[in-house]
Design a protein around this nucleic acid. Structure first.
Lengths: 130, 130
DNA sequence: ATAAGTGTATTGAGTGATATAATACACTTA
DNA sequence: TAAGTGTATTATATCACTCAATACACTTAT
């Protein structure tokens, strides 16, 4: 497990992926799910680093990517804040969903499954939430 | 593009992923799709390496993983051969499909999509086959 | 026996991504 | 002025991946 809650967000880091990527995804997920309010301030780079027991540079890398995606905005000397633009959040959420769908179909196609076979596989598998 | 055909299989390598992984996936894909016959010999480590212009060790790593999955069998001094067990191929094909489905649902769940929303997304997207 | 073609193992080296540590600077607010 | 922000830089370490070179074990054909 090894879970940490900071700034209202839950983090569970491991070594299977780059740390900055895990931090990025988990904050992005919190935003997409609406678990953290628009306009809200997220923990400072140093505070997050200390809480997660990782290097501030690693946290900053995640924050900068969020900024690039415009899911957050940064004000020097003040901190990093969730965007107030709900449409932006919605757009990115759907963009990421699109990518997941594409990747999924590509993977199954490479295994020789036809569209109707894929549909059948999905039908035989209702529950998968949370 | 930069495509190479060797042993009846098409390869297109890039630097976005480990080479051994790309070789592995593309051979596995050929087997799953039935593009290469059961029991057939695949090119030798050296021949494949030369054709793809990569190191023999890199090819061997891919071949060994195929052996571990029992999609191929290796006979020292003779070469590496596709399994003759059709059920084994079918089983692995479905196992990989299962994994793809799981990953897909996990990813969309982490974005806060419910099962019915996911179903809707999939419905609005029929064509994705080769 | 010998040679050629297989898979396999080992050692060494190079590169790039990732992560850390330490430090310094710029800006904002109290 | 001090404390808390983001940001930048430099250096170091580690790890996965890849390559190169070489050697060995086994099978088959000659």
């Amino acid at each position: 497990m090894n879970e940490v809650t900071v700034g209202g967000m839950r983090f569970a880091l491991d070594l299977s992926q780059p740390l900055y990527e895990q931090v990025l995804k988990q904050i992005r997920s919190s935003i997409a799910k609406g678990e953290i309010a628009l306009g809200e301030k997220i923990p400072s780079v140093r505070e997050m680093a200390q809480a997660l027991m990782i290097n501030p540079n690693t946290v900053m890398r995640a924050y900068q990517e969020l900024d690039r995606e415009q899911l957050t905005g940064t004000r020097r000397g003040q901190g990093t804040f969730i965007t107030t633009d709900a449409d932006k959040v919605k757009a990115i959420r759907y963009r990421l969903a699109e990518e997941a769908v594409d990747e999924f179909f590509a993977k199954l196609s490479s295994l020789g499954f036809t569209a109707s076979e894929i549909a059948a596989i999905l039908r035989s598998r209702g529950g998968a939430e949370q």
